[in-house]
Nucleic acid binder design. Structure first.
Length: 898
RNA sequence: GGGAGCAUAGCUCAGCUGGUUAGAGCACUUGCCUUACAAGCAAGGGGUCACUGGUUCAAGUCCAGUUGUUCCCACCA
């Protein structure tokens, strides 16, 4: 036996329990309650010291790899992480125990905008902007910030018990990842899949950067529809135009109508005058315009609306930019310098004053907002870098269609497909400083663009050294998209890459399928020629008890660290896993953590019980198993195969629930209770067998539960006799035919039924357990009761036990408990109220007759009997026979009562 | 406009490929300090599985529709 931990009170208890029985009771008082705080840090350290998280390429074992969804480097652990991490850790621990070389590769993300905003906020507190510092000094600040906060999230992940291979920790901005980013960029550029172009893009005026489509969130906002007069140039009339954005009229270069709109057909080709500005606008016909919305006339602002941009391209309209990077007016005459919202007010006021405003309607519409800072996003035309998506999407669609990659649950593959089929080019340049700088240099002399993996100092076209690197950085998600292979060393042909890639399962929330999952898939297919993982296991969002999204601003966030402090990491983990199925959101209830802590405590105490009674020092199973032993082993055997089955289907919540039920119900409430009379008996053989089965089942339980509750299981395991170095690397249980005893299992259920019937009778008569009357069992086949007599007297609180196939001569004053297999009598003269007893039995009889009717109806159905599988029919027949026997017993008892 | 999810006990949720009398936690009732655990034990109460129709020997489970609800995508100025 090894004992990896220090001398905890718990392991002291074991020794004392084994050798100094007399002192156990005082120890028990101290250790009655499991205290995670005393255990978790110590156990985590023992795993680290043991090197169990390290994946070894040369072990000869089959690899199983998960890459972590890298948390933001400056982030703090929230319940979403806890959810995500727990699922991954459960999978990785299971595979590790099951004989795989399990690699869980950790790391964190530089999170361009999010991090830059945080540092800028800090600077703002000192009255500075990033421009005051300049690019280089600002980046120094960010790196310092990263050093300060980068480890916080990692330390917090450790508190959860995450068994990541910390030696392989990666950062999306480290050299290895940077090399991959350059390689990927240049590959795509050389294939023509990255291009630079002027398009309408989403611009966040607060972050002052372009955003991709995925980074824009749409909110319903209250607004107005202003109807504005645009007089015709020839003075023959006017057009009325409806707009939600009057300030953009400064950039109008045309007016469009539907070509089939009879009202305006004759005006196409004519011009009108832009109010306040006086510019002449040509009236064009374009099918984009819908006649029945607004007035049927649309002002064209090509530089600030994607649709107008398209129309303008088709009709050769001029392009005038009227908003600058901060969304202030430019090229707008007297409005120059005004913020977009001030400009709106001023322009509406002027329109009204000059009689151009026809009317103002309330109008709700969707407004795009920045996913990082929530400011309104401005569509502006701007030169940016894009990834051409069409060619990449083709393969990304194929691998999912062909099931090379599957989503769990499957419905998300439809969402993925839909997105991939309609994907537009990905804007990857960001006007930030924190991030991977675009590896492109422009020659100031000849204008040539050099794109290179290595830093360049001279123009590749004209050799001029007068070249400047593109000031922009790449979208954070460009580097995250490479994560499953960049972290393993790609583009270098590293041993890690060869061994652990493609990875196996990707675990993440459904909210970042587009941001991340989709982009990893097409990036991997393109750059490595392989899928990045074969399974995407998706979970939902963690909400508060009222179903609201948790957020700092709403003040409803729960800090996982507080939960760990109060209930332990195991309880938090178990709470995240149970009562939840893949892809569904969960509501977080602190009370549930309490229930899970109670479960941990239950296991703790069951283990204490076993240790207190242990006089053996090895864990071999004996041969002389009795009926209860075979029953529990058989149940355990089924549990093991079911749990494995659930693991294969990623049904972690179901697996955890089954283990919970087995531990609490089967093991604690039944088997431990069953073992008590044997442990105390003078029959040493029986006592030892009970000890061995108790220990064996407990050990198997600890193994089964370990992926879910790693700390407490490891701690208990360390105090038990065992052959492994640690539970974390003990083999996960396998079902075995040798431990399957269906006959004994069924026979024992008969005894359990009798026990339950007796308890029920006693409860209804309010008989306390201290009262132990004689128990007379009248059964057709008494053998099974004889085999379980010891258990019956203990669990059914019997004084003396009489088992016979003959009915007692008199049952006067006896309470009865009745099952389909036996009638049980308890002489309790003073307690038995004959009338009450009669009513009780009659009620049971009613229930039993209903049951019998149900069964008879089923079996009378010719179609059922002939068409259902015989096994199903047989089960129904057995049930019918049980009801028949029960009814007979009940009727019999009713007669003797009178 | 397109798509997806959800609707099961008072509350929060499980229920896999259809097959016990539909389960768990919390809450509730009653009785228990039964020598591991009162963070516990035992016995209970509580459900027309949203509605309507269909398929089937058999439907909470599969199909169609209805209602309610949540979310995603698109972005008609």
């Amino acid at each position: 036996m090894r004992n990896s931990g220090g001398t905890t009170l718990f392991s002291v208890l074991r020794i004392q329990g084994a050798f100094f029985i007399g002192r156990v009771f005082e120890m028990r008082e101290l250790e009655k309650i499991y205290d995670p705080k005393q255990v978790e840090g110590k156990i985590y350290k023992s795993w680290m010291d043991g090197g169990y998280f390290r994946a070894d390429r040369n072990s000869g074992k089959k690899p199983f790899t998960i890459v972590i969804p890298p948390p933001n480097v400056t982030g703090q652990l929230h319940l979403g992480h806890a959810f995500d991490m727990t699922i991954q850790d459960v999978l990785i621990r299971f595979k590790r125990m099951d004989g795989y070389e399990a690699l869980w590769l950790p790391g964190y993300d530089h999170a361009g905008i999010a991090t830059q905003i945080r540092v800028e906020e800090k600077l703002a507190g000192e009255g500075l902007t990033r421009f005051d510092l300049g690019r280089e000094k600002f980046l120094d600040e960010v790196w310092a910030w990263k050093e300060k906060y980068g480890n916080r999230i990692i330390d917090q992940l450790k508190l959860l018990g995450s068994s990541c291979d910390w030696d392989r920790l990666r950062f999306t901005m480290d050299d290895v990842c940077a090399k991959a980013v350059r390689e990927a960029f240049v590959n795509l550029y050389n294939k023509g899949l990255i291009y630079k172009g002027k398009r309408i893009i989403n611009w966040c005026p607060k972050c002052t950067t372009a955003l991709s489509d995925a980074e824009v969130e749409y909110d319903d906002k209250e607004g107005f529809l202003w109807h504005v007069r645009y007089p015709l140039s020839d003075g023959s009339g006017e057009l009325v135009i409806a707009t939600t954005r009057p300030e953009t009229m400064l950039g109008d270069t045309g007016v469009a109508v539907n070509p089939d709109d009879e009202r305006y057909k004759h005006l196409v080709g004519k011009t009108c005058i832009l109010p306040l500005v006086g510019r002449e606008l040509i009236i064009v016909a374009d099918s984009y315009v819908e006649s029945d919305f607004g007035t049927g006339c649309v002002k064209m602002t090509p530089c600030h609306d994607p649709n107008d941009f398209e129309v303008a391209m088709r009709h050769d309209l001029p392009f005038i930019t009227v908003l600058d990077d901060n969304a202030k007016i430019i090229n707008g005459g007297k409005y120059d310098g005004l913020d977009r919202y001030e400009a709106r007010k001023a322009i509406v006021a002027d329109l009204e004053a000059e009689g151009y405003l026809v009317k103002t309607e309330k109008y709700d519409h969707n407004v795009g907002t920045c996913y990082r800072c929530s400011s309104d996003v401005e569509p502006i035309s701007s030169e940016q870098w894009f990834v051409k998506m069409q060619p990449l999407a083709t393969e990304a669609i194929r691998v999912v269609e062909d099931k090379e990659i599957s989503f769990v649950p499957d419905r998300f593959s439809k969402i993925y497909m839909n997105w991939m089929h309609n994907v537009r080019d990905w804007c990857i340049s960001r006007q930030l400083w924190w991030g991977h700088r675009i590896p492109a240099w422009t020659c100031s002399d000849c204008g040539h663009l050099t794109v290179s993996k290595e830093d360049v100092t001279v123009c590749e076209a004209c050799n001029s050294s007068n070249i400047v690197q593109d000031p922009d950085v790449l979208d954070t998600w460009f580097s995250s998209a490479l994560w499953p292979f960049s972290t393993l060393g790609w583009p270098d042909d590293t041993e890690d890459l060869r061994h652990f890639f493609p990875t196996d399962v990707l675990v993440t929330g459904y909210d970042i399928i587009f941001f991340w999952v989709a982009r990893m898939i097409f990036s991997s297919c393109e750059h490595t020629g392989e899928i990045p993982f074969h399974t995407v296991l998706l979970h939902g969002l963690v909400r508060d008890a009222h179903g609201k999204k948790m957020s700092k601003s709403a003040g409803n966030g729960i800090d996982p660290i507080d939960i760990i402090d109060s209930f332990g990491a195991d309880a938090l983990r178990f709470n995240m896993i149970t009562g939840n199925s893949p892809g569904n959101d969960m509501r977080f209830y602190v009370e549930r953590c309490e229930a899970m802590r109670n479960f941990a405590n239950k296991l703790w105490n069951a283990s204490r019980f076993v240790m207190m009674n242990l006089k053996i020092s090895d864990n071999k199973l004996p041969r002389d198993l009795d009926i209860a032993d075979k029953w529990v082993l058989s149940k355990l055997n089924s549990l093991i195969s079911e749990v494995r089955d659930n693991f294969d289907k990623y049904e972690l919540g179901i697996a955890a629930q089954k283990i919970y039920d087995f531990i609490w119900d089967t093991y604690c409430d039944w088997y431990i209770e069953l073992s008590k009379p044997r442990l105390n008996s003078e029959n040493e053989q029986s006592s030892e067998t009970a000890q061995r089965v108790l220990l064996y089942v407990l050990t198997e339980i600890l193994k089964l539960l370990h992926p879910f509750m790693p700390f407490i299981t490891e701690e208990i395991f360390s105090a038990l006799p065992h052959n492994e170095d640690a539970l974390i690397i003990a083999p996960y249980p396998k079902a075995s035919d040798d431990l399957n005893f269906p006959e004994e299992e069924a026979a024992f259920e008969i005894i359990m039924d009798a026990v339950k019937a007796v308890r029920s009778t006693r409860a209804q008569m309010n008989v306390p357990p201290s009262k132990r009357p004689k128990l007379i069992i009248h059964a057709g086949s008494p053998d099974v009761f004889l085999a379980g007599s010891e258990y019956l007297s203990k669990l059914a609180y019997a004084g003396e036990l009489v088992i016979s196939d003959k009915a007692p001569k008199s049952t006067d004053g006896m309470a009865t408990a009745i099952t389909g297999s036996a009638k049980l009598y308890m002489p309790m003269n003073e307690l038995v109220d004959l009338e009450k007893e009669r009513i009780r039995i009659e009620n049971e009889l009613i229930k039993a007759r209903e049951g019998l009717k149900r069964q008879n109806d089923k079996l009378a159905n010719e179609a059922f009997v002939s068409r259902a599988p015989t096994a199903v029919v047989d089960v129904e027949k057995e049930r019918r026979d049980k009801f028949i026997a029960l009814i007979a017993n009940l009727e019999d008892s009713l007669k003797t009562l009178i």
